[in-house]
Simulated assay, not measured.
Amino acid sequence: MQLNPYLMFNGNCEAAFKFYEQCFGGKIVTLMTHKEAPSAEHIPTEWQDKIMHVCLDLGSRLLMGSDSPPGYFEPPQGFYVQISIDEPAEAERIFHALAENGIVKMPFEQSFWAFRFGMLVDQFGTPWMVNCEKGA
């Protein structure tokens, strides 16, 4: 079994996934808008270019998402997407990239279980935990 996060957005999914692709060094392998769907004629004109499904390949894991239909979006709550990174410099880079224009909930610093750990909500509203267990 493999669990892969599926993130929902309020119209900014494409911008978020282009940012995640650059931040994590992955590759977007699927990007489908609502106008490409068989049901496109039932989608409002202003929603045609919104994302119906996107998939970011991160090697051994996938990060997927879409824009919630109008009126259905609910801000994420009660979870964090957790990232484990062995290399301290890379963990630091990713934490600070995700934190830019976001809200740091717990600074990226040493903890009793990890060399560095931090929590944040990025500029797109996605909650993240970045963990680096190993020191330099």
Rank of each mutant, 00 (worst) to 15 (best):
V121T: 15
Q77K: 14
E36P: 02
L56F: 08
C132E: 01
E14F: 06
P69Y: 08
K27Y: 05
R61M: 08
H34G: 00
V104K: 06
F124R: 00
M1D: 11
C132Q: 01
P38F: 08
V29N: 05
E74M: 15
H42F: 14
Q2W: 04
Q77S: 15
L3D: 01
F73C: 07
G125N: 08
S84T: 11
V54K: 00
F19M: 03
S68D: 11
F73K: 03
W47M: 13
L7E: 05
A91V: 04
G25S: 10
G135H: 04
P69K: 07
L120H: 04
R61D: 13
D122V: 07
D49R: 04
Y6V: 06
I85M: 03
A99R: 06
A99D: 06
Y20P: 00
N12H: 13
D86P: 06
P69F: 11
A91E: 02
W113Q: 13
K35S: 13
L98H: 04
S111L: 05
F24C: 09
T45V: 15
C132M: 05
I43L: 06
E92Y: 07
S111K: 10
T30S: 13
G65Q: 01
H96K: 12
A97S: 14
H42Y: 10
N131M: 01
L7R: 04
G25I: 08
G102A: 10
L7D: 03
L63Y: 03
P107H: 10
P69N: 08
